[in-house]
Amino acid sequence: MKIKLIRHATTILQFGGKKILIDPMLSPARAMAPVDYSPNRQNNPLVELPVTIEEFFDVDGVLLTHTHRDHFDDEAARLLPKEIPVFCQLDDKQKLNDLGFAQVYPIREKINWEGLKITRTSGQHGSGDLAKKMGPVSGYILSAPEEPTLYFAGDTIWCTEVDVALDKHQPNISVLYGGAAQFLEGGPITMTSEDVIRVCRKIPEMNVVVVHLEAFNHCVETRDAIKRALNDQGLSNSVWVPENGELLSF
């Protein structure tokens, strides 16, 4: 299994004989307006793609945790081939159909795709009323013969849903969306370093990868801050915080 972080939540996963593009945000740097009511006013994305656009066409399918613009932007909708299989949460099916994608597979619970099983999990994109305003988000458990069990948590904080997913599926590897994304009011809407540490403590033998960092203006926690927090807790050997363009093999 190989995971290549492109930028933010955009990754390319090689798993079960498939190459899967996850949460594609393909706009050039500074092409999108900043997130409103957030701690800084820089245009998004904050950094350029570390690869050429052509790399995104050499994939077998697309997996979306949700369709907020930092996970599926207008550029991805424009550039990706409309015949490519797209797997998503049920709430996003109509939007993708309206954009012209011909093979959209909403996952209510789980789906089998040519030997690869994808199971949807839930999360909370923030707390209280803020989470309701942010709308539904999903994570996914991926499993295939001779592969480790993999958990993409999606845009969620530590919550009961994450705790339940870890208990039920016992993943070998978890990919967490960090950055402590937030607005001027309300708490974080993605994982903080403290949330990452709670995930690590839940399954001590699990490997963890933290993405969703330093690429969108409402993400305030840096790679260095997360690494320091992990080091303080003695967790550096089981957690990876990759740079953009970095390939991890497990």
Rank of each mutant, 00 (worst) to 15 (best):
K2C: 08
K4Y: 07
K4V: 09
R7T: 04
R7Q: 08
A9P: 04
L13M: 07
Q14V: 11
G17S: 09
A29Q: 14
A29R: 03
P34L: 07
Y37V: 07
N40W: 08
R41S: 12
Q42M: 12
E48I: 01
P50F: 10
I53N: 04
I53L: 15
E54V: 03
E54P: 00
F56S: 01
L64A: 04
T65Y: 00
H66T: 09
T67P: 01
H68D: 10
R69N: 14
D70E: 13
D70M: 10
D73M: 11
E75H: 12
A76R: 06
P81S: 06
E83W: 06
Q89H: 11
Q89V: 08
D91Q: 14
K93N: 06
A102I: 08
Q103T: 11
R108C: 09
K110T: 09
K110I: 05
W113T: 08
L116C: 04
K117S: 14
S122E: 13
G123K: 05
G126C: 04
S127Q: 12
S127A: 14
A131N: 11
K132E: 14
V137L: 10
Y140H: 07
L142M: 11
L142S: 00
P148Q: 02
P148Y: 03
P148S: 12
F152D: 07
D155H: 15
T156S: 13
T156F: 05
I157V: 15
E161M: 11
D163I: 11
A165M: 03
D167S: 14
D167F: 02
D167G: 07
K168Y: 10
H169Q: 11
H169R: 08
N172H: 15
N172S: 14
S174P: 03
L176Y: 01
Y177H: 15
Y177F: 15
Y177P: 03
A181G: 15
Q182Y: 07
F183W: 12
L184D: 14
P188K: 04
I189N: 02
T190D: 10
M191F: 11
E194Q: 14
E194N: 11
V199C: 14
V199T: 09
R201H: 13
P204L: 07
P204D: 00
M206H: 00
V209M: 09
V211W: 00
L213K: 02
L213S: 05
N217I: 04
I226Y: 06
K227D: 05
L230S: 09
L230C: 07
S236A: 15
N237G: 11
S238C: 14
N244F: 05
G245W: 10
G245H: 10
F250C: 09
F250E: 05
